[in-house]
């Protein structure tokens, strides 16, 4: 008994957190992803950049199967996400996701937003869910807002609540889908600060972003996508500072 459980836990640490192979995704006749190979190691922060329409958000949404891949495989911690036999709801509790539009539940208070999934999906008791929620709310610096409704918060505060909501599920990794794109410029900093702290704590992160400063400072690896393929990837200073491909250079010249 003991030896078996030890063995299985040792295996899980060596596996990549996310491993995507030959992933294609079409919407009708529109091929958005054309054979993507991509991975995120445990504890790694990978920033995905690229022009709009390059398929980077679709790639991220395929990781927790918000989008159904057309062909190819998506493995999360060694589990095939595309397999119909996979308990998708259980896998999703291990994959935190943060949206561009926050998507907080407007009819619930901040605390309600943070405890709902804990109780419904993780079957935690109310007391435990509240405790976890308060801890994560303090972490994003919004402890005093627990009884506010989302509509009473600024965009930056809403996004931090959304991060705390995802963290309250104790996920193994976090997916960020352009988390600062819908924010007023002066509110971006607070959200990025929370994400930086998460990265420092060793959280596995896949971040689709237009924040090149964040990618350079926090990213372990930067992946540049264009036209549904990965054009180039590598250390932030290499991809952002010394891009090898013309498409990367042309994109960076527009955004930097």
């Amino acid at each position: 008994m003991t030896s078996v459980s030890k063995g299985s836990s040792a295996v899980s640490t060596t596996e990549p957190a996310i491993e995507v192979r030959a992933l294609c995704k079409s919407f009708g006749s529109n091929d958005v992803l054309k054979g993507i190979d991509f991975h995120v190691d445990q504890g790694e922060v990978v920033c995905v950049i690229g022009p709009s329409g390059s398929g980077k958000s679709t790639l991220l949404r395929c990781v927790n199967r918000l989008e159904e891949p057309t062909t190819g495989s998506v493995m999360v911690e060694g589990v095939d996400i595309t397999d119909p036999e996979t308990d998708l709801d259980k896998m999703r509790t291990r994959i935190g996701m943060v949206f561009q539009q926050f998507n907080l539940f407007p009819h619930l208070t901040v605390l309600g937003n943070l405890t709902l999934a804990q109780q419904r999906a993780k079957k935690r008791g109310k007391a435990e869910a509240m405790e976890v929620a308060r801890r994560n709310l303090a972490k994003v610096g919004l402890a005093e807002k627990e009884n506010a409704f989302p509509s009473q918060l600024s965009g930056g505060q809403q996004q931090r609540v959304a991060i705390a909501r995802a963290l309250s599920m104790d996920p193994d990794m976090m997916l960020f889908d352009e988390p600062t794109s819908a924010l007023d410029p002066e509110l971006v900093g607070d959200v990025l600060e929370v994400m930086k702290q998460l990265a420092r704590e060793g959280m596995t992160m896949m971040v689709v972003t237009h924040e090149m400063g964040f990618a350079r400072e926090v990213g372990d690896r930067v992946v540049f996508m264009d036209g549904g393929v990965v054009v180039e990837q590598g250390k932030p200073e290499d991809v952002l500072g010394n891009p090898q491909h013309e498409r990367t250079r042309s994109f960076l010249s527009k955004v930097l």
Partner: peptide, 21 residues
């Protein structure tokens, strides 16, 4: 649609998503 996506991405099943969100 984002409301359903948020709930489902948190691992809440379709029934509870309908009922609670």
């Amino acid at each position: 649609k984002g409301q359903v996506e948020a709930a489902r991405s948190l691992g809440i099943n379709p029934t509870w998503t309908m009922v609670s969100v």
